[in-house]
Nucleic acid binder design. Structure first.
Lengths: 132, 132
DNA sequence: TTATATACGATAATTATAGTCGTATTTATT
DNA sequence: AATAAATACGACTATAATTATCGTATATAA
């Protein structure tokens, strides 16, 4: 429970890989996949998603690839997670108001309390701090 | 991502239900299931698990049932989660040393850093605080 | 023109979660 | 002693979410 998904795991591996590269140099999905034994296609999707979200920069064409974005220092872990996987909620009712329980629900407040703590924690922690 | 499971959700609902009862009074799986529209059998298993872990007390036989345990005040949210679902780790490698990555893994330290923060947060928060 | 890279939608496979079934055990009540 | 209502629990099925693959389009350096 409360485990990171593979998508996020691969994203973290890729970020660290790119951070370790010489500044400005590009690396490819293939290169990262091979050096860490990850499924290339799935990793590629995650990289594409990160590029779309400006966590990394993409360069197309042969001898293209990805590099870490300059503003990646300012990204919080919360944003990183949410950019990749959507709202970071321990339960749907935190964002979604639709719930079968309706009036019978007695844990809405507790859930929100727990969620707020978790979101707050990941807001304070930057991707940089986590991966350096 | 990072969502609570139904097991934990049902457990929280049950705990709140029991907290709202007159002190010492028993309630049954059936009663909780009916009043909150939960699947009785599944809830029953969760209640049994909580009883086994001394979060609640079980009384067998007809007119038996469950009540909140007196020491439930001291239980942290981390313990509550872990008693119900096992180790609270965002990734297996935090507890498990077996990993396909072996030497190629570059995120062991980051993952542990993230996990430590999360475990620390849930250690400081009690079940009582969360559900009151 | 070709080769190599990103981009991306659709779909298949796998795994984890959620829920059910059947049966045994306990015990208050009659 | 018999019955009924509750907990206890292992095995199984169904469902949902995650993970992975496939096929194709687009960009661009050589």
């Amino acid at each position: 429970m409360l485990k990171l998904t593979r998508k996020v795991e691969y994203a973290l591996i890729a970020v660290r890989h790119m951070q370790a590269m010489e500044s400005g140099k590009l690396t490819s999905a293939k290169e990262i996949a091979l050096s860490h034994g990850l499924p290339q296609q799935l990793l590629a999707k995650t990289l594409q998603k990160m590029a779309k979200e400006n966590i990394i920069e993409a360069v197309q064409g042969p001898s293209g690839g990805y590099r870490i974005s300059s503003n990646s220092d300012k990204i919080s872990l919360k944003d990183f997670f949410e950019k990749l996987e959507g709202p970071l909620g321990m339960m749907d009712c935190y964002f979604d108001s639709e719930c079968i329980q309706l009036g019978a629900c007695n844990i809405r407040t507790p859930i929100q309390r727990i969620n707020d703590n978790m979101r707050n924690m990941f807001s304070k922690m930057t991707l940089r701090e986590a991966t350096q």
